[in-house]
């Protein structure tokens, strides 16, 4: 049975943007500097430092990326634009190149893949561009499983000019019936030695294709609980022993860093993680144990009242 996924997948992240795909005659421009791209309004998407799994970003700096999307006769193209004071175009000993990736969910299911490159049973595909000329299609189902796929026609071109990278990525698609599509972005700053998990990434966003029937209302971005109470509960419920988040003086690294939990994750994912921690296990070392081939999170399921849960949720969603 084939379904359109977007209906099931939404709501997405707390701050998911709606990125309209513009229909163009012919094919989208391959040159990211083309006026055909630059004339189109861009959607700004916030980026957060990856901190769930080591090696994690030390800098707390958030970022932002501007996204445009176009659909031609046969191809889908995305145009990414982000500031970078200095281009890093080559890789060498201790040298890293600027890069960007577009992430797609692969597996239809009830929940979106974990934002950090999916999770077991919920793979993602990636279009990967790097300033040294590398363009790849990759797939992963969790951190550490990134696997290069044979070339499938993904094209990308990047141009750095006046402190801005602009990259156009495109690929033939043959599924005209789609209306909406989850998508996420990541950017690496080479001269900051960013590579692998050292990156800035977005939450899942929505790509809205031309002719999508309705504009779906974005989900609640807040819980009904109290963030202030939630912050106190982080201590009381023992969360602070393992998770780092603003205001936790212990800065523990036993479990994923929650500094930007609200920025990267949807409320339902966070709620599910509390309720059923082993459902989606973040594949960091020490975050889980293997039991009978199954990964079991070291985090105990949340015990407490619904109100407490909502308070915690409210607090986490406030972390952006």
């Amino acid at each position: 049975m084939r379904r359109l996924l977007f209906a099931l997948l939404l709501p997405l992240a707390a701050i998911a943007a709606d990125i309209p795909v513009q229909r163009v005659d012919g094919e989208p421009a391959a040159d990211p500097m083309s006026s055909a791209w630059l004339a189109q309004a861009a959607v700004a998407v916030p980026l957060y430092p990856q901190a769930s799994v080591p090696p994690a970003m030390k800098a707390a700096g958030k970022g932002s990326i501007k996204v445009r999307a176009q659909r031609g006769a046969t191809t889908l193209a995305l145009h990414l634009e982000w500031p970078d004071r200095k281009p890093a175009a080559s890789r060498g000993v201790g040298e890293f190149a600027d890069a960007a990736a577009v992430q797609w969910p692969l597996q239809p299911g009830a929940a979106l893949p974990y934002i950090g490159m999916g999770h077991r049973g919920a793979p993602v595909a990636l279009w990967f561009w790097r300033a040294d000329g590398t363009v790849e299609t990759l797939a992963a189902e969790g951190f550490g499983t990134l696997t290069a796929q044979p070339g499938d026609g993904v094209k990308a071109k990047g141009v750095w000019k006046n402190g801005v990278w602009r990259v156009a990525l495109s690929r033939a698609v043959n599924k005209p019936a789609m209306e909406r599509m989850p998508v996420a972005f990541a950017v690496w700053n080479g001269e900051g030695a960013e590579r692998a998990g050292l990156k800035r990434l977005s939450a899942w966003q929505t790509l809205r294709f031309p002719g999508a029937t309705a504009k779906v209302s974005l989900p609640d971005t807040a819980s009904s609980g109290s963030a202030a109470r939630g912050k106190r509960l982080m201590q009381a419920k023992g969360c602070a022993a393992c998770h780092n988040y603003p205001g936790n003086p212990a800065k523990p690294r036993i479990a994923p860093d929650l500094s930007h939990a609200g920025g990267l994750h949807a409320a339902d994912y966070l709620a599910e993680s509390m309720r059923e921690p082993s459902k989606i296990v973040v594949p960091g070392k020490g975050y889980f144990t293997e039991q009978g081939g199954r990964r079991v999170s070291i985090m105990p399921p949340f015990e407490g009242s619904e109100a407490e849960r909502d308070d915690l949720l409210a607090f986490l969603l406030s972390l952006r």
Partner: peptide, 22 residues
């Protein structure tokens, strides 16, 4: 085949006996 050249190993080896092949 699986290495993606992240060089985390280069930094982490305290003997500096891993090398990045450019």
């Amino acid at each position: 085949e699986r290495c993606r050249g992240y060089q985390h190993c280069v930094g982490a080896c305290p003997y500096k006996k891993v090398y990045f092949n450019p």
